[in-house]
Amino acid sequence: MKELYSHHEIQQRAILIRRHVVKMAFEGKTSHVGSSLSCVDLLSALYFRIMTIDPQNWNEANVDRFILSKGHGVMAWFATLAERGFFSTETLKEYAQDGGRLAEHPSHGLLPGIKVSTGSLGHGLSVGLGMALAKKMDQSPSRIFVLLSDGECNEGSVWEAAMYATHHKLDNLIALIDYNKIQAMGRSNEVNALEPLRDKWRAFGWAVEEINGHNLDEILKSLEHLPFQSGKPSIVVAHTVLGKGVSFMEDDLLWHYQVPSEIQVKQALEELKSP
């Protein structure tokens, strides 16, 4: 079930995923290209190394689960699923097209690998918590991974889940925060008092690791010893950059919204090449 992908292969896949993302945003004429690019390295590490998955039996009781709680990062997830063989890369052309199976936020039941529909922030961690409880009851080895955005931590329900996951010692629940420092109206820490984020999660009883969310070595080093602490839910606060990988998109709020032009796509693809 678990194929071993080398560091190099994972990095190659991350480049391919980023290329898909840029093309999807252009073809689909959608926003959120920056929010997708910031979580690509986390997703490729999860899908090509960390998670126990089986694209052919993705919903089997004992494989790991993934919820994209930051549903607007969906281009990166679709592209990762396609690269990992859940469906063909050809399918990505359906993104944001009439009658397509790939919407601008994940919708379950249309394609393999997508179990939970999201789009409204602050839902995924609680749903994941429920799944983690069920897995504990069934004594299943399946773990639940939930990817959140930093802005999403404004939602009160995130903290309701944070408290209750600790209460039940759910060490099969793993949250990752794509901390790209930008939310819809500005810098996350200028919109709301997010910091000290690591301390907040620690105070809620989570085992926290803070990493560079684009450094594969750091990501793998962290996620390869889950749970971080037995009897505690784990969280990775991953420092990332909005629009990572495309120089003119990096750390610019504009790319939470803007659709790349043909010239910009060309330039982006020029930059996104194998090292």
Binding site: V127, G130, L133
Partner: peptide, 8 residues
């Protein structure tokens, strides 16, 4: 949401 997760 927990109820939904359990049911799923």
């Amino acid at each position: 949401s927990i109820a939904a997760g359990l049911a799923l």
